[in-house]
């Protein structure tokens, strides 16, 4: 059993870690970071919870068993960004808007398909890492 201080810190850190991951993700195109880094940060946040509280407690609070599905959704987004332009007659992975065209802004956030691709990478890295963490933390057949 971990100490109460560790548990308190871990509990308090989860939300900030996820926010940081999200920031790294959406700001990645203009600032430091990208989908991969964001995915790893978020996965480390989950790992901290698993180490401190144990898998059972975390599985009750967070949807760990959906991790593989999240990863596959991320892969699907990546392939969609790859394939949709090809179906529309452009080269595969051609990003919109085209060079020189001004993208839509939400605050300082620019809406471009490259960010969508990065979201796919983020979901894949997060899902795959959490799935592996979950598989390692799950009790094996001979244990318990």
């Amino acid at each position: 059993m971990t100490s109460s201080l560790t548990r308190m810190v871990a509990r308090a850190l989860l939300a900030p870690i996820l926010v940081v991951a999200l920031a790294i993700l959406v700001k990645g195109y203009a600032n430091v970071g990208d989908g991969f880094a964001a995915g790893v940060v978020a996965a480390l946040g989950v790992l901290l919870q698993v180490v401190v509280f144990g898998r059972e407690a975390v599985a009750a609070a967070l949807p760990l068993r959906w991790a593989p599905a999240v990863a596959l959704v991320g892969l699907g987004i990546g392939f969609a960004v790859f394939a949709v332009p090809a179906l529309l007659g452009d080269a595969p992975l051609e990003h919109a808007p085209a060079p020189g065209v001004s993208p839509v802004h939400i605050g300082s956030l620019e809406l471009i398909t490259a960010v969508v691709f990065d979201v796919g990478v983020f979901l894949l890295v997060l899902g795959a890492s959490v799935a592996i963490i979950d598989a390692i933390a799950a009790p094996g057949e001979g244990e318990q």
């Binding site: 195109y29 203009a30 600032n31 430091v32 970071g33 990208d34 060079p99 993208p103 490259a114």
Partner: peptide, 8 residues
Amino acid sequence: AHGKDIVT
């Protein structure tokens, strides 16, 4: 390519 972070 509408990016400021070359690596990304």
